[in-house]
Amino acid sequence: EPLWIRPDAPSRCTWQLGRPASESPHHHTAPAKSPKILPDILKKIGDTPMVRINKIGKKFGLKCELLAKCEFFNAGGSVKDRISLRMIEDAERDGTLKPGDTIIEPTSGNTGIGLALAAAVRGYRCIIVMPEKMSSEKVDVLRALGAEIVRTPTNARFDSPESHVGVAWRLKNEIPNSHILDQYRNASNPLAHYDTTADEILQQCDGKLDMLVASVGTGGTITGIARKLKEKCPGCRIIGVDPEGSILAEPEELNQTEQTTYEVEGIGYDFIPTVLDRTVVDKWFKSNDEEAFTFARMLIAQEGLLCGGSAGSTVAVAVKAAQELQEGQRCVVILPDSVRNYMTKFLSDRWMLQKGFLKEEDLTEKKPWWWHLRVQELGLSAPLTVLPTITCGHTIEILREKGFDQAPVVDEAGVILGMVTLGNMLSSLLAGKVQPSDQVGKVIYKQFKQIRLTDTLGRLSHILEMDHFALVVHEQIQYHSTGKSSQRQMVFGVVTAIDLLNFVAAQERDQK
C-alpha cells in the first residue's frame, strides 16, 4: 500500500453525458421521505430548503428570480454533511469501515464536522487534520463531537509532509485500522450531490432553472449537481466560483495573481482535486475576500440567511453572472454553511477592521482624538531585521541585547519573508524542534498583521487588541530589464502597544 495517494490523481470516472444510468458502476440512493420521529440526527441530513432572495437581486438590477439552496440546514450545519454520511455509508457497505475503526480526514473543517457527527452516532474514533487558518468555532464544535484535532501550517503546499493532507496520511500509516475516506478522491463525494442535492433542486424548481452558481473546494458539490442538471435540464448554465489565490478556475489566465492566501474558508485549493470535473462548468468567476464577507453580511442583514463567507462569494458572483438572465428565468445559488463557524471572524466588526474589510468610518461609535491620525505620526525608528541564514542562537542574543521581542526576517534585497519572535524561538528550542545552530528560517511564521503608514491609529489599535505587534510595510514598484514591473513589500518598522501608548501619553502631556 502506498504511503500516500495524491489528492489530485487523474480521475478514473467514466461518467458521460447521455450515458444510461443503468451502466453506472456505483451504488445510487434515492431521496427517502422522513418519518415524523427521526431514529437519529443523521436522518436530518439532506432535504434542505430552497429560499427566495428578495432584496439583493433587485438591489443589483437582476431581472431573474434568485433562489438560495440553504445547505446550513443540514444536521452539522453545512453541505459537507451529505458527503460525510455518504462516504461512511459506502465504506461500511463495501466492508472497508468496521466497528471500532478510526476515521482520519484532512479538511478545512466542515467535512470534519460532518464526519465527527456521523462518527459520534456510529461509534468510530475520528481524527481531523486541518490548517491553522480555520476558525476556532470549527475546532470547538469538533472537540465537542469527540474528534481529535491536529493543526497544520496554512501556507504548507498540499504535497508537503507538513500539509493537512501529508499529516493525515502519516497518521494513517501509524494508526492500525485507520482510514482516510479522502473527500478529494472519493466518488461518494460527487455521488452524494448527484443522487440527492441535484434531485432536490430539480424537484423544488419543478425542473425549471436557467443558471446554477456554486463555490468550489473539493469540487464534489458542483460536479455532482452539474452532471445531473446537464442530464435533466441541459439549458442550465453552470457557474463556478473560485477565490483569488486558488488555481481551480479555467482558463488558467484567471488564476494569475501574486496573491497566495485568502481568508474565506472551505473553497479554493492549490491543486485540482480528483473529484472535480471542470468540463461540466460553463464559466468560472474569481471572487475576493472583501466581496465575500460584504455579501455574507448582506445576506444575514437583508435576507435573514445566517450563512458563512463562501455563501457571500457565491452570491457576489451570482449578481454578476445572472445579469444575462431575463424576467421569468431563474438562478439558484448554493449557500454551503452557517455563520456559526465564523462568529469571531467576519461577523465581528473588530475582525473586519483588522483585516481591512471594514473602515473605521463605517462604525458610528465615538472615537478618541488620536483615532484618525496616521501611523506615520508615530515617528517610528528604523527596524531591526535579520536574514533567514542567521542562526536561532545568534538571533536570540541580538533580540535580548537590543531589547526586542520580535524581528522581521528579510532577504538580501529587503523583501519581507516573515517574522521571528523570542517566545516562538525559545519554545521551539525547548520542544526540540530546532537547535541553536539551525537557521532562523526554520522558525519563520507568517501569521502576523501588516499595516501601512497611511493607515489610521484606530486601525492599529484594533490590531493591537488581539496581537502583540504589527509590521509596518510599504510597497515598492521595481522595474526589470524586460520592461515588466513587480510590486514588493518592504519593512518600514515594527509597532507595539507600548509605542502607541507612549505616543498618546506624550501628545497629551505636551497639550497640557
Rank of each mutant, 00 (worst) to 15 (best):
Lys366Thr: 13
Gly418Glu: 04
Val410Ser: 11
Asp405Cys: 08
Glu250Gly: 08
Arg340Ser: 02
Thr257Met: 11
Glu324Lys: 15
Glu303Ser: 07
Asn341Trp: 00
Thr385Tyr: 03
Asn424Glu: 13
Lys446Pro: 09
Met352Cys: 02
Arg350Glu: 04
Val415Cys: 15
Ser287Glu: 08
Val491Lys: 09
Cys307Gly: 07
Asp405Glu: 09
Gly418Arg: 05
Asn288Trp: 12
Asp277Leu: 02
Ala311Asn: 03
Ala413Pro: 11
Asp510Leu: 11
Phe492His: 13
Cys392Phe: 15
Lys512His: 11
Leu460Met: 12
Glu291Arg: 15
Arg374Gln: 04
Val415Leu: 15
Met419Lys: 13
Ala382Lys: 11
Cys392Gly: 06
Gln511His: 13
Val494Leu: 15
Arg350Phe: 06
Glu397Asn: 15
Gln302Leu: 09
Val319Met: 15
Glu265Arg: 00
Met425Tyr: 08
Val495Asp: 09
Arg278Trp: 05
Asp499Pro: 00
Pro383Val: 07
Val280Ile: 04
Gly423Met: 06
Gly245Pro: 01
Tyr269Gly: 02
Phe285Met: 04
Asn288Tyr: 14
Leu353Glu: 13
Gln256Thr: 08
Thr260Asn: 06
Val333Pro: 02
Val415Ser: 13
Leu378Glu: 06
Gly266His: 01
Glu361Leu: 10
Lys366Arg: 07
Gly304Gln: 00
Asp510Gln: 05
Asp405Ser: 09
Glu401Leu: 03
Arg459Ala: 12
Asp282Val: 11
Asn502Phe: 12
Leu471Tyr: 14
Gln302Arg: 12
Lys283Met: 10
Thr385Cys: 06
Leu306Glu: 00
Arg509Ile: 07
Pro273Ser: 03
Leu378Trp: 05
Gln323Ala: 10
Gly423Asn: 10
Asp467Tyr: 03
Arg297Val: 00
Glu263Arg: 03
Asp349Gln: 08
Leu501Cys: 07
Gly414Phe: 15
Met419Cys: 15
His468Thr: 11
Lys320Cys: 09
Pro243Glu: 06
Thr257Gly: 10
Ile396Trp: 08
Tyr342Pro: 01
Glu508Asn: 11
Lys446Phe: 13
Leu335Pro: 00
His468Asn: 14
Tyr342Gly: 01
Cys331Met: 07
Phe271Asn: 00
Leu453Trp: 09
Ser481Glu: 12
Arg452Leu: 14
Val504Ser: 08
Val317Thr: 09
Phe357Gln: 05
Leu453Pro: 15
Gln478Lys: 10
Ala470Asp: 05
Gly245Thr: 03
Gln487Ala: 13
Trp370Asp: 01
Gly308Ser: 00
Val495Gln: 09
Asp282Lys: 14
Ile300Glu: 00
Thr496Gln: 13
Ser486Pro: 05
Arg340Leu: 04
Gly328Met: 08
Phe285Asp: 09
Glu508Met: 04
Val275Tyr: 00
Leu453Val: 13
Asp438Gln: 11
Leu399Glu: 08
Thr385Ala: 13
Leu429Glu: 04
Ala318Pro: 02
Gly309Gln: 00
Glu508Ile: 11
Ile247Asp: 09
Ile451Phe: 15
Ile390Tyr: 10
Arg400Asp: 10
Glu327Thr: 14
Cys307Met: 06
Lys286Pro: 02
Ser246Arg: 02
Gln439Thr: 13
Glu250His: 10
Gly308His: 00
Met425Pro: 09
Leu471Lys: 06
Ser461Leu: 12
Val319Thr: 10
Leu471Gln: 10
Val333Cys: 12
Gln511Trp: 11
Phe503His: 12
Lys433Tyr: 09
Phe492Tyr: 14
Gln447Ala: 14
Val472Trp: 12
Val375Gln: 06
Asp277Met: 01
Lys286Arg: 03
Gln354Ile: 04
Glu365Cys: 14
His372Asp: 14
Gly312Phe: 00
Val415Asp: 15
Asp411Thr: 15
Leu325Gly: 03
Trp351Tyr: 02
Val410Gly: 15
Leu457Arg: 00
Leu387Asn: 12
Asp362Arg: 14
Leu430Ile: 14
Asp282Glu: 12
Ser381Gln: 13
Arg297Ala: 01
Ala413Glu: 13
Leu305Cys: 02
Leu422Arg: 13
Ala431Lys: 10
Tyr269Val: 01
Gln450Tyr: 05
Arg297Ile: 03
Ile272Thr: 08
Ile390Thr: 13
Gln323Ile: 07
Thr364Met: 13
Glu290Cys: 11
Val434Asp: 13
Gly356Glu: 08
Gly304Asp: 00
Ala316Gly: 10
Arg459Ser: 07
Glu397Arg: 13
Val333Asp: 06
Gln447Trp: 10
Ser348His: 11
Gly312Ile: 01
Leu306Cys: 01
Pro273Val: 00
Leu501Ser: 03
Lys366Pro: 11
Leu306Pro: 04
Thr261Tyr: 13
His394Asp: 11
Arg350Gln: 14
Thr260His: 10
Thr496Met: 08
Gln435Tyr: 12
Cys392Met: 11
Gln354Asp: 11
Glu397Met: 11
